[in-house]
């Protein structure tokens, strides 16, 4: 549990960070909250020769609203998210989910950018960002580009990030007023990754589901959007047949690994239950 030696860099601008990462190549890793990278280094599963700490860059932190879009800086911590009235008001599902991430100590350090950029299938924010239709701003030696969260995740720890690129901010379109939302996460204890989790954002009209998006956490090597499951409830009043159909549709796209949280069959089964419960709770909140 003792990391190898490394060089520490603390650039003051995004441009400097990109230059460092490009020049140093694969031996360099950007450092945000460090809650994934540092444990990997202590286990010597990662031995970067250079750490490029992003904490010295002004402007990478903060939350602001621009029309119907929320812009969240990559170095914004989970604690900052929880403290934001704007998030609580406009995208309350992010507030609900952040409360389920680890514990207060971790949330003081852990950043939204690190959470979504690392590509860890256990992280909660990626599925939420996909559910909300968020896009990520990636800046690199070739300039800046926007990538939809839905197109970002390629495999466990594999993302659309190119060498030298860093994720600098997230744009989240605010869901319509009166939407219903819920993030249902089954975990063994505080600080655990989800055994399975489901995010639901929906709107209701005349007692029926008008629109619905469902995201899934930690039931596949990447976060998932369960489109067929959402389709199964649109136009319904979430009767038990519709809920059953949605859970079954969600389960068909899950392929979790067996681990200490349970065998594959269990994790898929409770994944379906999380979908059912998230749909019910989201509907109860919709106006």
């Amino acid at each position: 549990m003792i990391p190898g030696s490394f060089n520490y860099h603390r650039p003051a601008s995004v441009a400097d960070a990109i230059k460092l990462l490009s020049d140093l190549g694969e031996d360099a890793r950007p450092l945000a909250g460090g809650h994934s990278l540092v444990p990997m280094m202590k286990l010597r599963l990662a031995s970067p020769a250079h750490l490029v700490d992003l904490h010295g860059i002004a402007g990478l932190k903060g939350i602001r609203r621009d029309g119907d879009t929320l812009l969240i800086g990559a170095m914004t911590t989970q604690h900052d998210l929880l403290a934001s009235d704007e998030i609580a008001k406009s995208v309350p599902i992010l507030h609900e989910a952040a409360l389920l991430i680890a514990d207060p100590q971790v949330r003081y350090r852990g950043t939204i950018g690190g959470n979504v950029a690392n590509g860890d299938p256990g992280n909660d924010m990626p599925a939420l960002m996909m559910t909300l239709g968020a896009t990520y701003r990636l800046e690199g030696p070739g300039g800046a580009r926007e990538v939809a969260a839905a197109d970002f995740y390629q495999g466990a720890y594999f993302t659309a990030l190119e060498p030298g690129e860093i994720l600098t901010s997230i744009s989240v379109p605010a869901p319509p007023a009166g939407h219903g939302y819920a993030y249902e996460k089954l975990k063994r204890k505080v600080g655990d990754y989800a055994t399975a989790a489901a995010a639901v954002v929906l709107t209701m009209a005349d007692g029926k589901v008008a629109s619905c998006t469902i995201g899934l956490t930690n039931v596949h090597e990447t976060p998932l959007v369960a489109a067929d499951a959402a389709k199964a409830v649109i136009g319904t009043n979430l009767d038990s047949a519709a809920l059953k159909k949605a859970a079954a549709a969600a389960e068909t796209i899950m392929s979790p690994a067996a681990d200490a949280r349970g065998p594959v069959e269990y994790r898929k089964h409770v994944g379906g239950i999380m979908v059912t419960r998230a749909l019910q709770r989201a509907a109860s909140r919709a106006r």
Partner: peptide
């Protein structure tokens, strides 16, 4: 396969 407090159940005050 239970070499850390992630998988070796160590309850917190919450549990």
């Amino acid at each position: 396969v239970t070499g850390s407090f992630m998988d070796f159940f160590m309850p917190t005050a919450v549990e």
